[in-house]
Amino acid sequence: MIVDLPSSTTSAVNRKLVELRETGGVLALGRVLTLVVVTDDGADIESAIAAANSASREHPCRVIVLARGQRRAAARLDAQIRVGGDAGASEVIVLRGYGPLAADEPGAGMVAPLLLPDAPVVAWWPGEAPAVPSGDAIGRLAQRRITDALSAKNPIRAFEQRRAHHVAGDTDLTWTRLTHWRALLAAALDHPPYEAVTSAVVAGEAVSPSTDLLAGWLSNRLGVKVKRSPSSSGAGMSSVRLNRPSGPIELIRPDGRTGTLRQPGQPDRLIALSRRGVPDCLAEELRRLDPDEIYGAALTGVADIARGRTPVKVEV
């Protein structure tokens, strides 16, 4: 069900929510967090809401979409409430602020009265994020701030900002996209021969913050020289090589779909390793509401990586 409340206020929205709960049965009870989605008003809103709805199946939440409309307009708040089939396992409140209400502080002022009592608040910028998320008006309301450098107009610059302004509680989806890679690499080191890694090479697209971040993680965890090289082919991350005295462990993904794990003296092993979609990443992000120290450490590790120029050939 979708209820439109044009030219409204947050107290009217709150009243309507209570009314919907009384007439329509249980809503908003048992929600575990409030997810605030901050975006510009436009076509992208729906895909962000869809991602939030699919994540809400795992983490029932109230989704507040703060859509910033025209700044050169009269002050107006158009609200919309979606519940039931139109909102997955969540309830969605879309707040479209115009004129002065499209600015940061008034935006946060509209969100605050709608936050669930006592439940954690997560802010998510599906597109362009503020340079300092923790200093942003919405970011200050939230325990966890999720950004996505890859969806920014300039991913490299956005990633640099993340590194420069990281505080506990920030994460970026470039990190989430690496989880499968990291899990496979960690699992490979769980088994014999138990040897220390002497150096590592990480290759990927020239513009790929995830590749930089994986190199940073390895550098931070292993404390050895890690080289970040461009790759001859493939999108995003394409290969990792961990050198050990008995021979390297290699994880290669030339086509963006299938990974090959190669270890000395063992047959090549194939594994599905597709790039992950935003809903999948968001669900993983919401699984933990405490700061991700490992991510913070990986960001600092980026400073220590060596840059290679020669493209690494990626083939199976």
């Binding site: 960690a186 699992a187 080191l189 769980d190 138990y194 390895l218 965890r221 063992q266 092993r269 490992i294």
Partner: peptide, 20 residues
């Protein structure tokens, strides 16, 4: 004697994948 340098109890994202 082996501690896997890529694992950390604080790294809650990493699932345990079964060995070969």
């Amino acid at each position: 004697d082996w501690t896997n340098p890529l694992r950390d109890p604080r790294d809650k994202r990493l699932p345990r994948i079964a060995g070969p």
